[in-house]
Protein backbone atom coordinates (compact mmCIF):
# COMPACT_ATOMS: atom_id res chain seq x y z
CA UNK A 1 0.00 0.00 0.00
CA UNK A 2 1.42 3.37 -0.95
CA UNK A 3 1.92 6.11 1.63
CA UNK A 4 -1.09 8.23 2.59
CA UNK A 5 -1.64 11.45 0.68
CA UNK A 6 -2.67 13.19 3.86
CA UNK A 7 -1.89 12.13 7.39
CA UNK A 8 -3.11 14.13 10.35
CA UNK A 9 -2.01 13.12 13.83
CA UNK A 10 -3.13 14.50 17.17
CA UNK A 11 -4.20 17.80 15.67
CA UNK A 12 -5.25 20.42 18.21
CA UNK A 13 -6.50 23.78 17.00
CA UNK A 14 -7.03 26.54 19.51
CA UNK A 15 -9.30 29.52 18.97
CA UNK A 16 -8.05 32.52 20.94
CA UNK A 17 -10.87 34.22 22.80
CA UNK A 18 -11.82 37.77 22.04
CA UNK A 19 -11.56 40.27 24.93
CA UNK A 20 -12.43 38.38 28.15
CA UNK A 21 -13.48 35.13 26.49
CA UNK A 22 -11.25 32.16 27.30
CA UNK A 23 -9.40 30.30 24.55
CA UNK A 24 -11.32 27.36 23.17
CA UNK A 25 -10.14 24.10 21.66
CA UNK A 26 -11.78 23.60 18.27
CA UNK A 27 -10.01 20.36 17.38
CA UNK A 28 -9.18 17.89 20.13
CA UNK A 29 -6.54 15.52 18.88
CA UNK A 30 -7.83 14.66 15.41
CA UNK A 31 -6.28 11.74 13.55
CA UNK A 32 -7.09 11.33 9.89
CA UNK A 33 -5.42 9.47 7.09
CA UNK A 34 -6.33 9.51 3.42
CA UNK A 35 -4.85 7.10 0.92
CA UNK A 36 -4.15 7.90 -2.72
CA UNK A 37 -7.30 7.91 -4.83
CA UNK A 38 -9.62 7.42 -1.87
CA UNK A 39 -12.73 9.46 -1.10
CA UNK A 40 -12.79 10.14 2.61
CA UNK A 41 -15.93 11.77 3.99
CA UNK A 42 -15.81 13.97 7.04
CA UNK A 43 -19.33 14.13 8.38
CA UNK A 44 -20.67 16.16 11.26
CA UNK A 45 -22.88 19.06 12.17
CA UNK A 46 -21.99 22.72 12.05
CA UNK A 47 -19.45 23.64 14.71
CA UNK A 48 -18.11 20.10 14.87
CA UNK A 49 -14.75 21.15 13.43
CA UNK A 50 -15.05 19.88 9.83
CA UNK A 51 -14.08 23.20 8.35
CA UNK A 52 -11.23 23.67 10.84
CA UNK A 53 -9.66 20.49 9.53
CA UNK A 54 -10.11 21.63 5.94
CA UNK A 55 -8.68 25.04 6.72
CA UNK A 56 -5.65 23.54 8.45
CA UNK A 57 -4.97 21.39 5.41
CA UNK A 58 -5.33 24.37 3.08
CA UNK A 59 -3.32 26.63 5.40
CA UNK A 60 -6.14 29.14 5.69
CA UNK A 61 -7.03 29.00 9.38
CA UNK A 62 -8.96 32.04 10.58
CA UNK A 63 -7.02 34.83 12.19
CA UNK A 64 -7.64 33.85 15.81
CA UNK A 65 -7.12 30.13 15.30
CA UNK A 66 -3.76 28.41 15.62
CA UNK A 67 -2.45 24.89 15.58
CA UNK A 68 -1.57 24.14 19.20
CA UNK A 69 -0.08 20.72 18.57
CA UNK A 70 -0.14 17.84 16.16
CA UNK A 71 1.31 16.86 12.80
CA UNK A 72 0.04 17.19 9.27
CA UNK A 73 1.90 15.29 6.59
CA UNK A 74 0.84 16.17 3.08
CA UNK A 75 2.40 14.23 0.17
CA UNK A 76 5.37 13.44 2.40
CA UNK A 77 5.94 17.04 3.51
CA UNK A 78 5.77 18.25 7.09
CA UNK A 79 3.02 20.64 6.06
CA UNK A 80 2.87 22.83 9.17
CA UNK A 81 6.63 23.47 9.13
CA UNK A 82 6.95 24.20 5.41
CA UNK A 83 7.89 27.73 4.41
CA UNK A 84 4.80 29.64 3.20
CA UNK A 85 6.20 30.08 -0.30
CA UNK A 86 6.67 26.34 -0.70
CA UNK A 87 3.13 25.73 0.56
CA UNK A 88 1.70 28.25 -1.86
CA UNK A 89 3.44 26.50 -4.71
CA UNK A 90 1.60 23.30 -3.82
CA UNK A 91 -1.82 24.83 -3.18
CA UNK A 92 -3.91 24.80 -6.30
CA UNK A 93 -1.49 22.36 -7.95
CA UNK A 94 -1.12 19.33 -5.67
CA UNK A 95 -3.92 20.22 -3.27
CA UNK A 96 -6.99 22.13 -4.31
CA UNK A 97 -10.39 23.11 -3.04
CA UNK A 98 -13.93 22.79 -4.33
CA UNK A 99 -15.76 25.39 -2.27
CA UNK A 100 -19.37 25.40 -1.19
CA UNK A 101 -20.56 28.61 -2.75
CA UNK A 102 -19.56 29.01 -6.39
CA UNK A 103 -20.85 32.56 -6.60
CA UNK A 104 -18.43 33.84 -3.99
CA UNK A 105 -15.56 31.62 -5.12
CA UNK A 106 -15.55 32.89 -8.69
CA UNK A 107 -14.64 36.45 -9.49
CA UNK A 108 -17.64 38.26 -10.96
CA UNK A 109 -15.37 40.58 -12.95
CA UNK A 110 -13.40 38.01 -14.94
CA UNK A 111 -14.30 35.54 -17.64
CA UNK A 112 -14.31 31.81 -16.99
CA UNK A 113 -11.33 31.48 -19.33
CA UNK A 114 -9.24 33.88 -17.33
CA UNK A 115 -10.09 32.15 -14.05
CA UNK A 116 -9.15 28.70 -15.32
CA UNK A 117 -6.01 29.91 -17.12
CA UNK A 118 -4.85 31.77 -14.04
CA UNK A 119 -4.33 28.60 -12.01
CA UNK A 120 -2.83 26.76 -15.00
CA UNK A 121 -0.24 29.40 -15.81
CA UNK A 122 0.58 30.01 -12.16
CA UNK A 123 1.58 26.41 -11.60
CA UNK A 124 2.52 24.90 -14.95
CA UNK A 125 5.01 26.09 -17.57
CA UNK A 126 2.45 26.90 -20.22
CA UNK A 127 1.98 29.41 -22.98
CA UNK A 128 -1.18 31.48 -23.03
CA UNK A 129 -2.32 29.54 -26.08
CA UNK A 130 -1.68 26.16 -24.46
CA UNK A 131 -3.52 27.26 -21.32
CA UNK A 132 -6.54 28.31 -23.40
CA UNK A 133 -6.60 24.93 -25.10
CA UNK A 134 -6.28 23.16 -21.78
CA UNK A 135 -9.09 25.29 -20.32
CA UNK A 136 -11.32 24.31 -23.22
CA UNK A 137 -10.50 20.64 -22.68
CA UNK A 138 -11.27 20.99 -18.95
CA UNK A 139 -14.69 22.50 -19.59
CA UNK A 140 -15.36 19.69 -22.00
CA UNK A 141 -14.25 17.17 -19.36
CA UNK A 142 -16.73 18.59 -16.83
CA UNK A 143 -19.39 18.17 -19.53
CA UNK A 144 -20.21 21.77 -20.15
CA UNK A 145 -22.00 22.13 -23.46
CA UNK A 146 -20.55 24.69 -25.85
CA UNK A 147 -17.31 25.05 -23.86
CA UNK A 148 -15.88 27.56 -26.34
CA UNK A 149 -18.76 29.92 -25.67
CA UNK A 150 -18.72 29.43 -21.89
CA UNK A 151 -15.01 30.30 -21.78
CA UNK A 152 -15.92 33.87 -22.65
CA UNK A 153 -18.82 34.14 -20.24
CA UNK A 154 -18.92 35.58 -16.75
CA UNK A 155 -20.08 33.63 -13.66
CA UNK A 156 -23.42 35.45 -13.45
CA UNK A 157 -24.35 34.14 -16.88
CA UNK A 158 -24.12 30.53 -15.69
CA UNK A 159 -26.54 28.44 -13.62
CA UNK A 160 -25.55 27.18 -10.16
CA UNK A 161 -24.80 23.71 -11.49
CA UNK A 162 -22.65 25.12 -14.30
CA UNK A 163 -20.69 27.30 -11.89
CA UNK A 164 -20.01 24.29 -9.68
CA UNK A 165 -18.75 22.43 -12.78
CA UNK A 166 -16.40 25.31 -13.53
CA UNK A 167 -15.04 25.11 -9.98
CA UNK A 168 -14.51 21.39 -10.37
CA UNK A 169 -12.63 22.09 -13.60
CA UNK A 170 -10.42 24.62 -11.78
CA UNK A 171 -9.81 22.23 -8.88
CA UNK A 172 -8.71 19.44 -11.25
CA UNK A 173 -6.81 21.75 -13.62
CA UNK A 174 -3.29 20.90 -12.49
CA UNK A 175 -3.85 17.22 -11.75
CA UNK A 176 -3.96 17.42 -7.94
CA UNK A 177 -3.25 14.50 -5.62
CA UNK A 178 -5.78 15.70 -3.05
CA UNK A 179 -8.96 17.73 -3.32
CA UNK A 180 -10.80 19.21 -0.37
CA UNK A 181 -14.48 19.40 -1.29
CA UNK A 182 -16.33 21.52 1.25
CA UNK A 183 -20.08 20.82 0.98
CA UNK A 184 -19.79 21.19 -2.79
CA UNK A 185 -23.43 20.40 -3.58
CA UNK A 186 -25.33 21.97 -0.68
CA UNK A 187 -26.68 24.81 -2.80
CA UNK A 188 -27.88 22.58 -5.64
CA UNK A 189 -31.17 20.89 -6.52
CA UNK A 190 -31.26 17.12 -6.03
CA UNK A 191 -31.13 16.26 -9.74
CA UNK A 192 -28.30 18.71 -10.41
CA UNK A 193 -26.57 17.48 -7.27
CA UNK A 194 -26.58 13.94 -8.62
CA UNK A 195 -25.05 15.11 -11.91
CA UNK A 196 -22.34 17.09 -10.11
CA UNK A 197 -21.55 14.11 -7.87
CA UNK A 198 -21.36 11.83 -10.92
CA UNK A 199 -18.92 14.25 -12.45
CA UNK A 200 -16.86 14.50 -9.27
CA UNK A 201 -16.70 10.71 -9.10
CA UNK A 202 -15.57 10.41 -12.75
CA UNK A 203 -12.98 13.18 -12.46
CA UNK A 204 -11.72 11.76 -9.17
CA UNK A 205 -11.24 8.30 -10.68
CA UNK A 206 -9.62 9.73 -13.79
CA UNK A 207 -7.45 11.83 -11.47
CA UNK A 208 -6.56 14.62 -13.91
CA UNK A 209 -3.48 12.68 -14.99
CA UNK A 210 -2.68 11.14 -11.59
CA UNK A 211 -2.46 7.39 -11.83
CA UNK A 212 -4.74 5.79 -9.26
CA UNK A 213 -6.98 8.85 -9.12
CA UNK A 214 -7.22 11.92 -6.96
CA UNK A 215 -7.92 11.56 -3.24
CA UNK A 216 -10.85 13.60 -1.93
CA UNK A 217 -11.56 14.90 1.53
CA UNK A 218 -15.32 15.30 1.25
CA UNK A 219 -16.88 17.50 3.90
CA UNK A 220 -20.62 17.20 4.39
CA UNK A 221 -23.44 16.92 6.88
CA UNK A 222 -25.44 14.71 4.55
CA UNK A 223 -25.16 10.99 5.29
CA UNK A 224 -26.80 10.23 1.94
CA UNK A 225 -23.91 11.80 0.03
CA UNK A 226 -21.41 9.89 2.17
CA UNK A 227 -23.13 6.61 1.31
CA UNK A 228 -23.09 7.29 -2.41
CA UNK A 229 -19.63 8.77 -2.87
CA UNK A 230 -17.19 7.89 -0.11
CA UNK A 231 -14.98 4.89 0.57
CA UNK A 232 -14.21 5.80 4.15
CA UNK A 233 -15.86 8.07 6.66
CA UNK A 234 -14.90 9.90 9.84
CA UNK A 235 -17.76 11.14 12.01
CA UNK A 236 -16.81 14.24 13.93
CA UNK A 237 -18.41 15.91 16.92
CA UNK A 238 -16.98 18.54 19.23
CA UNK A 239 -13.62 18.53 17.46
CA UNK A 240 -13.13 14.82 18.00
CA UNK A 241 -13.52 11.91 15.60
CA UNK A 242 -16.16 9.76 17.30
CA UNK A 243 -16.20 7.01 14.72
CA UNK A 244 -14.22 6.11 11.61
CA UNK A 245 -14.04 3.28 9.16
CA UNK A 246 -15.22 1.90 5.85
CA UNK A 247 -18.49 3.39 4.66
CA UNK A 248 -19.83 -0.06 3.86
CA UNK A 249 -19.23 -1.22 7.43
CA UNK A 250 -20.35 1.86 9.32
CA UNK A 251 -23.54 2.26 7.30
CA UNK A 252 -24.26 -1.39 7.89
CA UNK A 253 -23.71 -1.23 11.65
CA UNK A 254 -22.86 2.15 13.16
CA UNK A 255 -21.10 1.67 16.43
CA UNK A 256 -20.98 5.07 18.16
CA UNK A 257 -24.18 6.33 19.78
CA UNK A 258 -23.77 9.67 18.04
CA UNK A 259 -23.49 8.07 14.59
CA UNK A 260 -26.62 6.03 15.28
CA UNK A 261 -28.41 9.20 16.40
CA UNK A 262 -27.38 10.98 13.19
CA UNK A 263 -28.90 8.16 11.14
CA UNK A 264 -32.15 8.28 13.09
CA UNK A 265 -32.40 12.05 12.66
CA UNK A 266 -32.04 11.87 8.88
CA UNK A 267 -35.44 11.95 7.17
CA UNK A 268 -35.96 9.38 4.42
CA UNK A 269 -38.75 9.33 1.90
CA UNK A 270 -38.91 5.55 1.98
CA UNK A 271 -39.68 5.34 5.70
CA UNK A 272 -42.82 6.39 7.55
CA UNK A 273 -42.84 9.77 9.25
CA UNK A 274 -42.74 8.16 12.69
CA UNK A 275 -39.25 6.77 12.04
CA UNK A 276 -37.65 10.19 12.46
CA UNK A 277 -36.00 10.74 15.84
CA UNK A 278 -34.19 13.94 16.72
CA UNK A 279 -30.80 13.47 18.31
CA UNK A 280 -31.22 12.56 21.96
CA UNK A 281 -29.71 15.44 23.98
CA UNK A 282 -28.27 12.84 26.34
CA UNK A 283 -26.03 11.55 23.54
CA UNK A 284 -24.50 14.95 22.80
CA UNK A 285 -24.39 15.85 26.51
CA UNK A 286 -22.28 12.77 27.19
CA UNK A 287 -19.91 13.80 24.39
CA UNK A 288 -19.73 17.32 25.80
CA UNK A 289 -18.78 15.95 29.23
CA UNK A 290 -16.02 13.91 27.62
CA UNK A 291 -14.82 16.96 25.71
CA UNK A 292 -14.70 19.04 28.91
CA UNK A 293 -12.71 16.33 30.66
CA UNK A 294 -10.40 16.19 27.66
CA UNK A 295 -9.85 19.96 27.81
CA UNK A 296 -8.96 19.79 31.51
CA UNK A 297 -6.46 17.01 30.97
CA UNK A 298 -5.02 18.82 27.98
CA UNK A 299 -4.64 22.08 29.91
CA UNK A 300 -2.87 20.30 32.77
CA UNK A 301 -0.49 18.54 30.39
CA UNK A 302 0.55 21.77 28.71
Amino acid sequence: MSAPVLEIEGLHVLLRGERREPDRLMLRGVDLSIRPGEVHALVGESGAGKSMIARTVLGILPHRAQVASGHVRLLGHDWLKMPPAARRAMLGRDVSLIPQDPMSALSPAHTIERQICEVLRLHLPMSAQAARERALALLDAVRIREPARVLHQYPHELSGGMRQRVLIAIAFACGPRLIVADEPTTALDVTVQREVLRLLRTMQQRGGGQSGGTAVLFITHNLGLVAKLADRVSVIHGGRIVERGLVAEIFDAPHAAYTRALFAATPRHDRPAEALRPIDPAVTAALDVEAAAYDNAWARAR
Partner: peptide
Protein backbone atom coordinates in the same frame (compact mmCIF):
# COMPACT_ATOMS: atom_id res chain seq x y z
CA UNK B 1 -44.07 7.87 -2.89
CA UNK B 2 -45.24 4.29 -3.25
CA UNK B 3 -46.15 4.59 -6.94
CA UNK B 4 -45.24 7.88 -8.63
CA UNK B 5 -47.20 8.25 -11.86
CA UNK B 6 -45.21 11.02 -13.45
CA UNK B 7 -41.70 10.16 -14.64
CA UNK B 8 -40.43 13.49 -13.32
CA UNK B 9 -41.60 12.58 -9.81
CA UNK B 10 -39.75 9.27 -10.18
CA UNK B 11 -36.65 11.15 -11.29
CA UNK B 12 -36.84 13.46 -8.26
CA UNK B 13 -37.29 10.53 -5.88
CA UNK B 14 -34.37 8.64 -7.43
CA UNK B 15 -32.12 11.68 -7.17
CA UNK B 16 -32.48 11.86 -3.35
CA UNK B 17 -29.34 10.28 -1.92
CA UNK B 18 -30.65 7.94 0.76
CA UNK B 19 -28.11 6.96 3.40
CA UNK B 20 -27.70 3.45 2.00
CA UNK B 21 -24.59 2.21 0.26
CA UNK B 22 -25.62 1.57 -3.31
CA UNK B 23 -23.19 0.59 -6.02
CA UNK B 24 -23.89 2.18 -9.35
CA UNK B 25 -25.90 5.14 -8.04
CA UNK B 26 -23.25 7.47 -9.41
CA UNK B 27 -22.43 5.49 -12.54
Amino acid sequence: FAAPRDHYTRELLDAVPLPDVERGWLD
